[in-house]
Design a protein around this nucleic acid. Structure first.
Lengths: 198, 198, 198, 198
DNA sequence: TATGAATGAGCCTTCATTCAT
DNA sequence: CATGAATGAAGGCTCATTCAT
């Protein structure tokens, strides 16, 4: 198991390195696939011996969980902050979509891994936290869409279908968006929202 | 290697069983993941011994390829037929979305496997055929959207973004659609198109 | 996991081979130690590839459990048979010691492994069965000693101490007895009982 | 390698701590098994980091050797002292058994480790010293029994069997004796000798 | 066709040990 | 003295695949 050191200075260095490991792992898993990447492969890419990795990851599955947390936690936090403040539903949806698409684009690798391993996430006990985060986030999006519908601005009669459509569009963004491309994340987000809002 | 029999009667029975094997494999892979499912797991679920499976699959990877073909081939064929006939772009888009969503829903497991193994499909030589099918299908959708745009009916200025949005929505459908739910595939397809068309 | 075949003929061959594997494992473990013997070592000695062994053992620990069962089950059964029949306590003790020592000597390797791994046996849930067998056997010995004491023929006032002494002597036999030596098992058993009986 | 300090004051503190380490290691090994206990486990139990342990142990195997020495050296020394003085064989046997059983009981953990690792001790070059101690001690016991037999007081015709019986009884004591129980070590020793002496 | 024994490579993980700090 | 990061070599086990029956 990965046991972080207790002394604050070391703890800091440890935490930073652990973040790096998770980040790099996301990149490698996204490219080769989680199962197709051996711990040896990963260690090599990170520049450690296989055993050394285990100071930071606990297990391969815990590493995968950390990748998902690194994806979901800040997104959920920022979305909550945003929606806590009072504002018009359309404005909130635009702001939410903006940060969401930006997050997806910045965490492209995390997203790809998250999607690849959907069946894993939906199954075990140890994935409960990740599942819960995903559901909470979807709930936030749903709420904004509901308020938009109540304001008569949602172009789709079925709110659930609107939610699924938005989820599908945004998540899929990870699979085609290129940072050096013509479109900026904000353009993408605006486009998606334009489709939904009257 | 899987060597099908030559005598027609036997060949027929063999083909039918092979189709069943591929179908069942899609189901199991969708639930447990391709890599997390061993050949022995799969054989047990199908009701054969491990060795017996190999009469029908050739190899595990070929089985995966067959799953993808079973998904893409008929979809591509029907889409081509549809778009070969002359018709208005909106009508064609509606018809295309209808059969597409219906196909996704009917091949939910295939879709989930297809999405899980995206990184596999995008890489090797033996996946060229599957990749090609996917690209051809996306090209067909793109063409309809282009004609819709030329007719001034597309609600998004950026056609590529519209394509990505549609791909995202429809593909994502596999992840939430429930056959016994409130919505029928046709409702879903209509909703998606309504978002895009003016 | 080790899954035995269902068809009777194959099942028979499987069971026989499994018995052989357990037997050989006892021999190797006794000589090199359970932990110091790798599955590779063991497989080599048995004449299988490492993977092939797993058709018969399930896991290294289950193999250890089987060794213990192969030791305890027949001993317990014979002891029960013997003590079920009515007889004088001294005669029963002599008969019991006779078969017990003979069993220890014939299962010398099993005994050595059993003693080496005492700490393992006393701990986990999966060892409950083995622990229970050991306790039941000791209980049988205790009963005979009690009846001997009631008949006024036990040379030690403390019956528990007598039991421990006998257990110590007989079990230790595995560590020094040589089949080609001067003493036969029956001589050893007689000697032990002579010490205890007035 | 473990390099003790040279300055006497430090050396003293070092030696005391080393004794403690060996003592605690015996306890942990007895409970969990030598091989099943990692250096990290051990360090945690002792309250050091893994690296810190190595100041005191040299290597895991040297630690095991020290445990055996801590068991055998004082026993052998006291037994030699006792038997150096002239006395009747029965009195000597009683005295020897007394200190022996007391020693076994006080070094219960050491004994359990010693028995667990019998196959290790009997094999390597570095174990020659421990093996030699064991043999010398057994030789001392054998001599007393021989003199007892010459005095016509041994209840077993076969002296080797008597020796094995005594070794078995006393060594086995480590496995059942409870310090807070009804019996004191002296009672146990007397019981064993009573069995052997006419 | 089908079975299940068998292989051999590879995977995740552990662990004794070392060393810079 | 002590820490904890790091290594590198196994170790137990799984698994796709083959083949005699």
């Amino acid at each position: 198991m990965a046991v972080p050191p207790t002394r604050p200075v070391l703890r800091d260095r440890y935490d930073r390195k652990q973040q790096m490991v998770v980040l790099q792992a996301a990149r490698v898993f996204a490219a080769r696939g989680y199962d197709q990447t051996s711990i040896q492969d990963l260690a090599e890419e990170i520049g450690l011996a296989a055993g050394g990795l285990y100071h930071y990851i606990g297990s391969k599955e815990q590493l995968l969980i950390r990748i998902c947390d690194q994806l979901m936690d800040p997104l959920l936090e920022r979305a909550r902050e945003l929606l806590a403040a009072p504002a018009e539903p359309e404005a909130q949806l635009r702001a939410l979509a903006g940060l969401w698409v930006a997050h997806v684009v910045e965490h492209r690798d995390h997203m790809l891994v998250f999607q690849q391993e959907r069946h894993t996430i939906e199954r075990g006990e140890q994935w409960r936290g990740v599942r819960s985060s995903r559901k909470q986030f979807e709930r936030l999006v749903e709420d904004v869409l509901d308020r938009l519908a109540q304001a008569g601005r949602l172009r789709l009669a079925d709110r659930r279908l609107a939610l699924s459509a938005l989820l599908g569009m945004v998540n899929h963004t990870a699979q085609w968006f290129r940072p050096r491309g013509r479109l900026r994340p904000a353009d993408v987000a605006r486009g998606y929202v334009d489709l939904l809002v009257d």
